[in-house]
Amino acid sequence: MLRLVSKKVIGLASQEGSALSASRPVQVLPRMYHERVIDHYDKPRNVGSLDKNDPTVGTGLVGAPACGDVMKLQIKVDEVTGKIVDARFKTFGCGSAIASSSVASEWVKGKQLEEVVTIKNTEIAKYLSLPPVKLHCSMLAEDAIKAAVKDYEAKRAKSNGSATAAPAAKAAEA
């Protein structure tokens, strides 16, 4: 009888105990980096450079060394379809900055120019679970995408401008 009672008491206690220990991992733990940040830092996608003088390549360079972050994102665009066929990045900055730019380079590939400018920093931050102190990394990545697109469009406007201007000049000569 006694044994039964005590077993019951202990059983209850241990149930409570296991409930407690089960709830422990649910606690929000101070975590330095999300797994995806570490994955992108360890195996960054699309590191490298494209020829910046190529008219189909847009280059975005944002950030400043003094702030501890510089991102360079390059996109290669198919002139006919307006689709981004390749992307490369190089980043000087913390792990989150490297991961943000790696994610950005992955996301822009295969998309239309109009589509990529709608990529928001909040989406990148959410995907990488960036803490508040690292949100500027995702903002920098968004800026880099926009700067690359802007650079490409400026290049194209220039070459188109000269292309249309050239026949006009020829006509004038004639």
């Binding site: 590191v47 510089v70 360079k72 980043t91």
Partner: peptide, 8 residues
């Protein structure tokens, strides 16, 4: 450094 735009 290989992925640093500054080094490049």
């Amino acid at each position: 450094r290989e992925m640093s735009p500054l080094y490049e």
